[in-house]
């Protein structure tokens, strides 16, 4: 296995914590991206798109993404992609933060969608 799964989604944690290297963060969508940016600056390469899913970053609280597990030389493409994604996320939050106080059934739906987005990526990663 040559990847680390970074997530704030408890469903993804439950599904994958026994099977894959995983960092679970009790943090916001934006903070997950910022954590990933830190890892990228340490030399980890981004393996999935940080803005996966058409659900806007100010709507869903959940984000899961994959980076390589062994740090190497800084990957500039990953740096650009995570920076662009953080900027886009901040733009949406400047309009309105809709991720607070969501009902339980909506949280469950958002968790399920985020889980399926990363599940597809892991199927590609584990080929």
């Amino acid at each position: 296995m040559d990847h680390i799964l970074i997530t704030n989604n408890p469903l993804v944690k439950d599904k994958y914590q026994d099977r894959t290297a995983l960092v679970f963060l009790e943090k916001s969508y934006l903070e997950v991206l910022c954590y990933a940016r830190g890892e990228i600056h340490k030399g980890h390469e981004l393996l999935t798109h940080p803005l996966s899913g058409s659900i806007k970053p100010n709507e869903t609280p959940y984000k899961s993404l994959l980076v390589t597990n062994k740090p190497k030389a800084l990957d500039y493409r990953s740096v650009t992609m995570i920076e662009d994604s953080i900027e886009t996320t901040k733009k949406f939050f400047s309009i309105r933060d809709r991720t607070q106080g969501l009902r339980k059934d909506l949280l469950a739906d958002f968790q399920e969608i985020d889980y399926h987005l990363i599940k597809g990526a892991l199927e590609s990663a584990n080929k």
Partner: peptide, 8 residues
């Protein structure tokens, strides 16, 4: 339009 960057 996949999520995994290598697919892209």
């Amino acid at each position: 339009e996949n999520v995994y960057l290598a697919d892209k």
